[in-house]
């Protein structure tokens, strides 16, 4: 071999550039969230006052309510969509071949493929036609729908990597289907279900466009509340709030990373 085929000149530099681009805006927001100044353009020393402001300031009521809405909606949407997606994954992966399998897969992936703004418009028109009241419930329903494919993908990927022999052995020992799922499949699928759940949770927490269309009176989620505030100026309290959300996301991704690690360790050996 005349040279290392895995190394290309400049790729390291571009990777560094990539990370630089990804992190600089976030770091700038983090740094400025500690700025003591009321006006964000001047630096007047380090302070935690904007973090205090997030919890006690004039907008704190609004943000608390929005955070509560966001969390309850994301949690409910993630639980429901993960349950539906787990059932669907078992049906698809362990249901044998059947006509309409690829159509079912297309249906499940539909919410990922349709642009968000289109989903938002279609859902609004639908709710308005059937006179479904716009409020927390309308947001929740919309979120469940678009969370299903995000929960489905990691769960079915995990299930595909599990040999059917475990369930077959259980069923040979006269375990019922529910018992087979509960005591055999579920523990092995666990990490996949957990990452599906986390993905659904964060996707729901992240959503702005669809929520903005289907939210009703007095119901704000964190993204819609932040959007409203940001338009009137990127104030330091928004930066503090953003930094808190950022840390929350990092905590979640770290959690899912370690769950994935544990999952790999638990993963039964595959035939190949």
């Amino acid at each position: 071999m005349t040279f290392d085929v895995r190394r290309y000149r400049g790729f390291f530099g571009l990777t560094m550039l990539c990370l630089f681009i990804l992190y600089v805006p976030l770091l700038v927001v983090m740094v400025y969230s500690f700025n003591d100044s009321r006006s964000i353009t001047n630096w007047e020393g380090v302070s935690l006052r904007w973090y205090v402001d997030v919890f006690t300031g004039p907008e704190s009521e609004k943000f608390k309510q929005a955070a509560w809405n966001s969390l309850t909606i994301a949690l409910s949407a993630a639980i429901v969509s993960t349950t539906i997606a787990t059932a669907a994954a078992i049906g698809m992966v362990r249901g044998g071949a059947f006509r309409g399998k690829s159509a079912t897969f297309a249906l499940i992936s539909l919410p990922i493929m349709v642009p968000e703004i289109v989903t938002a418009v279609a859902t609004l028109i639908f709710f308005s036609t059937i006179a479904f009241p716009l409020g927390t419930l309308s947001i929740l329903v919309a979120h469940i729908v678009f969370c299903i494919p995000f929960a489905y993908l990691p769960i079915s990927a995990r299930l595909q990597g599990i040999e059917a022999s475990y369930e077959e052995a259980a069923q040979d020992l006269y375990a019922g289907r529910w018992a087979t799922f509960r005591h055999v499949l579920f523990p092995i699928m666990g990490p996949g279900i957990m990452s599906g759940f986390l993905l659904a949770f964060i996707i729901s927490l992240d959503d702005f466009i669809i929520t903005n269309f289907v939210k009703g009176a007095g119901v704000e989620t964190l993204p819609t509340a932040i959007f409203g505030s940001v338009k009137q100026g990127i104030q330091p309290n928004i930066m503090a709030l953003s930094t808190l959300l950022l840390l929350f996301s990092i905590a979640l991704v770290t959690l899912s990373y370690f769950i994935g690690k544990r999952g790999e360790a638990l993963q039964p050996d595959r035939g190949d």
Binding site: S76, I79, T83, G135, T136, L137, L140, G216, G218
Partner: peptide, 24 residues
């Protein structure tokens, strides 16, 4: 899991419907 879900949905629906002593 189903039970928690139902409770969560009911709680949300109730929150949206409570109209006593409010002004929107």
């Amino acid at each position: 899991k189903r039970l928690t879900t139902t409770t969560a949905i009911l709680a949300l629906a109730a929150g949206a419907a409570a109209a006593e002593g409010e002004l929107r």
